[in-house]
Amino acid sequence: MTAILSLLNDYTFQTVALGSGLLGLISGVMGSFAVLRKQSLLGDGVSHSALPGVAIAFILLSSKNTEVLLLGALLSGLLATLFIITIVRHSRIKFDGALALVMSVFFGLGLVLLTYVQKIPNSNQAGLKRFIFGQASTLLSRDIFLMSICGFILLSLVVLFWKEFKLFTFDSDYAKSLGFSPKKLNLLLSLMIVLAIIIGLQTVGVILMSAMLITPAVAARQWTNKLWAMVFLSSCFGAVSGVVGTAASSMIPKLPTGPSIVVCISIIVIISILAAPGRGILHRMYRHRKNRLLYKLEGGQINVPTI
């Protein structure tokens, strides 16, 4: 108990937990839209593709400021998205193939650039490598400030364009027939999702970022049939696992933060898929059993004749 109390008073912990919680909240909201648009894996692609942007930003501006590096990440993530869309639109290659190719090539380019950076005298590349695995413990209060601003912008946009996003995500042809340009909405929403991914890189790294996007949304979907409730729940799940994951990694020695957060959110999704009322697997099994029982009581045979 005292351990928890002293942890709560620890400044570093407060910063890191706040950052992870914020990240969970933002990615929970944006992830809901990514999942509903069947673009779950785009997050994986974008986060891997951000690596060369980080390296190039460092090489060109020789600054290790998070803002500068993240700007590079944002640009290269967007460029990768653009490549994927172009390949799919102008050839017979399907989305999954284009995604796998672009993301691995960009990641490869990132590695090439990192090895190049290593050779630049007086440059310690440790600050760059943290983007691969993420290092929540390096979060500073100015990083939190940056995250809060991005988060605020994203959330306001979601509130402002709620009706449009809902319509577009559900039925983009119909949205067009009502006079809402799907092209503009697609661009705006994709941009917002990419931004959410980029601000999470520092905390959980390129490999695990996709989980932060997908998992809370899938968990939330199990509990409700309403979009607003799903988005709200998803952001709660994200925030809670961000904080709990950070706490666990501070209390247990040698437990890395990023993976710890991912395990937390995965536990939530497993519980949700199993136990969600009316939809979960346990409920399904219960209903199945009840039906059989009813059938038996009414004197029928359990084995329904097969045709």
Partner: peptide
């Protein structure tokens, strides 16, 4: 289970297994 889309299933399974691996290693 049809409770989630196939691409979402991929995106849930591999980060979890990967995280467990990283935790075990560290």
């Amino acid at each position: 289970t049809r409770l989630l889309a196939e691409d979402a299933a991929i995106g849930i399974v591999f980060p979890l297994l990967f995280s467990i691996a990283i935790i075990l290693i560290t």
